[in-house]
């Protein structure tokens, strides 16, 4: 299993797409630096930054970049018969799927941590003197990551299914863009996979829970959709004729 992940990481590392990981945290950094939004009137200056940075990052860039990475990790397999070669090696399809998935979520975790660094940098540069709200930031960082888990499973599924690079990307963009509308809907917001990262990262939800979203919602929506997408993609890949 480790050897398969190793091989996956090797192939991805050499593709240089890995620099994409820096894009979202960097953009977050610029957004954080570009404006001052004193209107919110929060008690802690960090909160303002978080609200502004999180919205663009979580609504747009997090789901977009995870989608692109999912496509890339399948693209070189689709291109010149890579699936054939890979699956004729002594590996099970299950392991290949799991390795690709694990690698993706680890990369997204790395991106979340870089984003955490951006948040901190913004504060340093702007000279924010308020205490760094560590617990809230962690909730946001890890919550956002947990929320991308089902989304990545879905993106991996779509990327395996479509041979073209553009198709999964287009689908991803089409579903990412309405997020800003959907998350404002009381009825659909909590169930929209692309909206979960924002809902989980957005500070100001209930602060008593571990995350900003109540546990039962996490378990049902995030957990449920994770199971659905992961098992769906997994079974699809097992059955797929190469």
């Amino acid at each position: 299993m480790v050897s398969v992940i190793n091989s996956e990481w090797y192939k991805l590392r050499k593709s240089k797409v890995i620099f994409l990981l820096f894009v979202a945290p960097l953009i977050g950094l610029f957004i954080g630096l570009s404006g001052s939004f004193n209107a919110i009137g929060a008690m802690n200056e960090w909160y303002e930054k978080l609200v502004v940075m999180n919205s663009t990052y979580a609504i747009l860039f997090l789901p977009l970049i995870s989608g692109v990475l999912a496509s890339v990790i399948c693209r070189y397999e689709h291109q010149e018969g890579g699936w054939k070669q890979l699956l004729a090696l002594p590996v099970t399809r299950g392991k290949v799927f799991l390795s690709k998935y694990l690698l993706l979520i680890l990369l997204m975790l790395a991106m979340q941590l870089m984003y955490l660094v951006s948040i901190y940098l913004v504060g340093m540069i702007e000279g924010i003197t308020d205490p760094f709200p560590m617990d809230i930031v962690w909730k946001s960082i890890f919550g956002g990551w947990v929320a991308t888990l089902p989304l990545i499973a879905l993106q991996l599924w779509v990327s395996i299914a479509f041979k073209s690079f553009a198709a999964p990307f287009a689908i991803n963009v089409i579903f990412t863009l309405p997020t800003i509308l959907v998350i404002n809907s009381e009825r659909f917001g909590p169930y929209y996979p692309w909206g979960q990262p924002f809902l989980m990262m957005n500070i100001g939800g209930s602060t008593e829970d571990v995350f900003f979203v109540p546990w039962d919602q996490i378990l049902t929506v995030v957990g449920g959709s994770f199971l659905l997408f992961f098992i769906g993609g997994y079974l699809y890949f097992l059955k797929k004729a190469i």
Binding site: N6, S7, Y10, K11, E80, K84, Q85, L89, P90
Partner: peptide, 29 residues
């Protein structure tokens, strides 16, 4: 499969890797 080597239809390879790197990706597995 541990005891089989194969080349099916058109050659399969990863275009973004060098010859050595292509083999390295399989070697790891």
């Amino acid at each position: 499969l541990k005891n089989i080597g194969s080349l099916v239809e058109n050659p399969s390879y990863y275009p973004h890797l060098t010859a050595k790197e292509n083999l390295e990706a399989s070697r790891k597995i």
